[in-house]
């Protein structure tokens, strides 16, 4: 069976990123020359560390869902990946708005 090595296209903070089919979100970020994509509470930059989903350093927000481990998740076509910190409160507000609308 021949490998299906199409590229998968997505965005990080609105900018285009891509990876081979099956590669992780982290791989796409690394391929886009990013080595860090998260800011800690004290203002430090973090990207990959343990690579296997144990350390939670690589967290991103994907399609509105915060706290996603970039190293573990295959990049899907059209994913909107964001910095995990910036939209957390917006995500929560979205949930409130949904709730109120019900």
């Amino acid at each position: 069976m021949s490998a299906n090595l199409n590229r998968v296209h997505a965005t990080f903070e609105g900018e285009a990123i891509e990876a081979e089919t099956g590669a992780s979100v982290a791989a796409a970020l690394i391929s886009s020359d990013r080595v860090a994509w998260r800011t800690t509470r004290d203002g430090a930059q973090r990207g990959l560390f343990c690579g296997i989903g144990v350390c939670f350093d690589c967290l991103v927000e994907i399609d509105g869902e915060s706290g996603q481990r970039a190293c573990m998740i295959p990049l899907q076509e059209g994913m909107r990946v964001c910095d995990n910190g910036t939209r957390a409160s917006r995500t929560a507000v979205d949930a409130d708005t949904e709730e109120a609308a019900q």
Binding site: E20, A26, A27, I30, F49, C50, G51, I52, C71
Partner: peptide, 24 residues
């Protein structure tokens, strides 16, 4: 060790095995 670009040794290997590319 908290600088971006520092990884667990096994994390580098896992990344390579999973993605067919290296993290650096």
């Amino acid at each position: 060790w908290q600088l971006p670009g520092v990884m667990a040794a096994g994390g580098i290997q896992a990344f390579g095995k999973q993605n067919g590319m290296l993290p650096g």
